[in-house]
Every structure is written in C-alpha cells, then in structure tokens.
C-alpha cells in the first residue's frame, strides 16, 4: 500500500476507534448487558455501522472506477463451510464469556481500559493456536492455495 493509503487507513481507523469508544462498546459490561438482553444498543451500533458501510460498498464502485489511491476495490472473503459456522460458535462462546471482540480489545487500550490487555493477549494466543495447529494451509480460502504450496517461505 502507498504511504498516502496508509494515512487513509489511519484516518478511517481513527474514526472507527472513536466510534467504538463513543458507543461504549469498549466497556465489556455494556456488551454483556446487550447479550443478556438488558440494553439493545449494540444493535444500533452494528446497524448504523453496517448501514453506512453498505452505502459505500454499493455506490462507490458505481461512481468510481477504482479507489482513489489504489487499483482495486476489495471484498470481504466469505466462504460458507464447516469452519465458518464452528468458528462462529467458538467466537460467540468467547464473546459471551468476556464481552470483548477484536475491535474493542484494540480500541479499549486507547481509552485506558487496561484489563482489556488480557483479552488482547488471549485473542492473539487464540489466533496463533488456530493458525499453528488447526489450519492446514490446504483449508485456507481457494485463491491462496496454489501460491501457498509453491511458496519459498514454506518451512515448518
């Protein structure tokens, strides 16, 4: 990515983090309050974010041939297989246990919520154990398999 694109990502990420903090999603208690059906605010956060994003995803490619600074519009990699659903069950169990998901775990540090460091360490460890022991490169999304098997960086 070009330096100017990295600056754009930093600016977008700053809005993202400000929004997470303003909407109190960096308080696990608020997230757990939603999951225990005491306060449905999280639905407004998710709905507002997905709605604004939907407009950009839907209309930007119609108006622009390509992103302002880069060559291609990306797409969220979405495959439906056993891992998608089993992973979602495991993710949900963890989310229900701690009330922290990856975005707030990162953003919370900027607002002085230090205990979230524990969640951050847990998430990083979980992602490592998944990649190290449970994800053969062959189960990766199709587009990367051919390049992966012939990659010179492949050592174990």
């Amino acid at each position: 990515m070009k330096p100017v694109s990295l600056l754009a990502v930093l600016a977008g990420g700053t809005l993202f983090g400000f929004g997470l903090a303003l909407s109190t999603m960096i308080s696990p208690e608020v997230v757990l309050g939603f999951l225990r059906l005491h306060d449905f605010g999280l639905m407004l956060v998710l709905g507002g974010a997905a709605g604004a994003t939907f407009i950009a995803y839907r209309f930007a490619p119609l108006v622009l041939h390509k992103p302002m600074f880069e060559a291609h519009f990306g797409k969220h990699a979405s495959d439906l297989n056993r891992d998608t659903i089993v992973g979602a069950v495991i993710f949900g169990a963890g989310w229900g246990l701690c009330g922290v998901c990856p975005g707030p775990a990162v953003a919370g540090l900027g607002a002085g919520n230090w205990p979230l460091l524990l969640a951050l360490v847990g998430i990083a460890a979980g992602a490592y154990v998944h990649g190290r022991f449970f994800a053969a490169a062959a189960t990766a999304p199709k587009h990367s398999i051919t390049r992966e098997t012939s990659s010179p960086g492949q050592r174990s």
Binding site: M1, S5, A8, V9, A11, G12, G13, T14, L15, F16, G17, F18, G19, L20, A21, L22, S23, T24, M25, G41, L42, L44, V45, L46, G47, G48, A49, A50, G51, A52, T53, I55, A56, Y57, A60, L64, K66, P67, M68, F69, E70, A71, H72, F73, G74, K75, H76
Partner: peptide, 23 residues
C-alpha cells in the same frame, strides 16, 4: 451515542474503502 458511534464506525470503514479499496 449508540447511533452516532455506529455511524462513525461505518464512516471510517467507508472512508478506507473509497480511498484504498481495503475491507
């Protein structure tokens, strides 16, 4: 604050998409 925060999150994701195409 929920709505405003959610819209800001979406604005950030939208900005990144429009400028860089990243998701």
């Amino acid at each position: 604050h929920y709505l405003a925060g959610g819209l800001l999150i979406g604005a950030g994701v939208a900005l990144i998409f429009v400028l860089t195409g990243a998701v």
